[in-house]
Deep mutational scan, measured.
Amino acid sequence: TRVETATETAWISLVTALHLVLGLSAVLGLLLLRWQFPAHYRRLRHALW
């Protein structure tokens, strides 16, 4: 049971790290898009909202 718990903890930390990385890359990508294509971003936002 001790090994299982350790594996579970490792998986949880791995998944958390993955989610953090994905979230950060998504935010960075959005910022980059907004910085590179302001007109396109505004049009996209206008279409979405």
Rank of each mutant, 00 (worst) to 15 (best):
R34A: 07
A6I: 04
L48V: 11
V21Y: 04
T1D: 08
A47S: 10
A47W: 07
A26M: 13
A39W: 09
E8D: 09
I12Q: 09
W35E: 13
A6W: 04
L18Q: 02
G23S: 10
L32P: 07
L44S: 03
Y41Q: 06
P38H: 12
T9S: 12
T1W: 12
L33S: 03
Y41T: 11
A10D: 07
A47I: 08
S13H: 10
L22K: 05
T9M: 14
W35D: 09
R45P: 03
L14N: 02
L44F: 12
T5L: 03
R34H: 05
R45Q: 08
A6K: 11
A47E: 04
L20P: 02
L30M: 14
Y41P: 05
R34V: 06
L14P: 06
H19R: 02
G29N: 01
L30R: 03
H19N: 00
V21T: 15
L44H: 05
V15R: 04
L32A: 15
R2Q: 15
L33Q: 05
A10K: 13
W35C: 13
S25Y: 01
T7Y: 13
L33C: 15
A17E: 02
H19K: 03
A6M: 10
L28A: 04
T16I: 14
A47H: 10
H46W: 00
H46P: 08
R42F: 09
L28M: 12
L20F: 13
A10P: 06
W49D: 00
E8F: 00
H40W: 08
A6V: 06
L28H: 02
L22N: 04
T5Y: 05
P38F: 07
L28V: 02
L33F: 08
T1A: 13
L30W: 08
S25Q: 10
A39N: 15
G29H: 00
W11Q: 00
L31K: 04
H46I: 06
T9E: 08
T5Q: 00
T7L: 11
A6R: 11
R2H: 12
H19P: 04
L31E: 04
L22Q: 05
R34K: 15
L30Q: 02
S25V: 13
L32V: 14
W35M: 15
S13M: 13
A6Y: 04
L33P: 01
E8G: 06
R45V: 07
G23W: 09
V21E: 04
A47N: 08
E4K: 10
L18R: 01
A10Y: 04
A17Y: 00
R2L: 12
V27R: 04
T5K: 00
Q36S: 15
L33I: 11
R34C: 07
L28N: 03
I12E: 01
Y41V: 15
A10S: 12
A47M: 08
T5R: 00
L32T: 12
A26L: 14
T16R: 03
L28Y: 07
L22T: 10
E8S: 06
A26D: 02
W35L: 13
L33E: 03
A6S: 14
L44K: 01
V3P: 00
T16Q: 03
L33D: 03
S13T: 15
W49I: 06
L32K: 04
T1F: 11
T16W: 09
R45D: 04
L24F: 10
L48R: 05
V3I: 14
Q36G: 15
I12K: 14
L18D: 04
T9A: 14
P38T: 07
G23D: 03
W35R: 15
T7S: 13
L30T: 09
A39I: 13
L31I: 12
V3F: 08
L14W: 00
Y41M: 10
L30V: 11
G23M: 15
R42P: 02
R45S: 07
W11H: 08
L24W: 07
A17M: 11
A47G: 07
G29C: 14
L24D: 01
L32Q: 05
V3Y: 01
G29M: 15
I12M: 07
L28T: 05
I12V: 12
S13N: 09
Y41C: 15
V27M: 14
L24I: 11
I12W: 06
V3K: 02
R34E: 02
R45I: 07
L31A: 14
T1E: 11
V21P: 02
L32E: 03
R2W: 12
G23R: 02
R34L: 04
S25C: 15
V15H: 02
A10L: 04
V15K: 02
V27G: 11
G23N: 03
E8T: 10
G29P: 00
R43C: 08
W11D: 03
V15W: 00
H46G: 09
W11G: 02
S13I: 13
F37E: 02
P38G: 09
H40Q: 15
F37H: 09
L20Q: 03
W49V: 03
P38N: 13
T1K: 12
S25G: 04
H19E: 04
T5C: 01
R43S: 10
Q36E: 10
L14Q: 02
T7N: 10
T9L: 13
Q36L: 11
L22M: 12
L48E: 06
V15D: 05
F37V: 07
W49R: 03
W11C: 05
R42Y: 14
S25M: 07
L44N: 00
